[in-house]
């Protein structure tokens, strides 16, 4: 598979085993998301929920949406979007943390 990483027009077939593993990973993270709501983390509650959601989003993008097989430029774009999202959240919490 690695040989085809830089050939975006190739068809990539991900095995059922890999897809099943990704699905189990996503379900496990969903379970974690629900479980942490029972733990009192104070202001970190939102941060933990968002980090788990970002990891899940990353997994979906990487395997289900085939980002793994795309040109590096697309990965940089997605990385940039995640970075922007993180910065917007951090800047918003500049208000809440110091109010």
């Amino acid at each position: 598979m690695e040989n085809h990483e830089h050939e975006p027009h190739e068809n990539h077939i991900t095995s059922y085993t890999t897809l099943a593993k990704v699905l189990i990973g996503l379900l496990f993270l969903t379970f974690i998301t629900v479980a942490v709501t029972g733990i009192h983390l104070g202001p970190l509650t939102v941060a933990v929920a968002l980090i788990i959601a970002c990891v899940k989003g990353g997994i979906v993008l990487t395997w289900f949406m085939h980002l793994k097989f795309e040109l590096p430029v697309f990965r940089y774009m997605v990385l940039g979007v995640f970075l922007l999202f993180a910065l917007i959240i951090i800047v918003t919490f500049f208000d809440y943390a110091f109010r």
């Binding site: 910065l87 500049f94 208000d95 809440y96 943390a97 110091f98 109010r99």
Partner: peptide, 20 residues
């Protein structure tokens, strides 16, 4: 992207966020 708060100086937002 990071200057939106200048619409909100008098909203009751924190002082730290305002100078930022």
């Amino acid at each position: 992207y990071f200057v939106w708060g200048h619409h909100m100086y008098t909203s009751g937002m924190s002082g730290t966020a305002r100078w930022f």
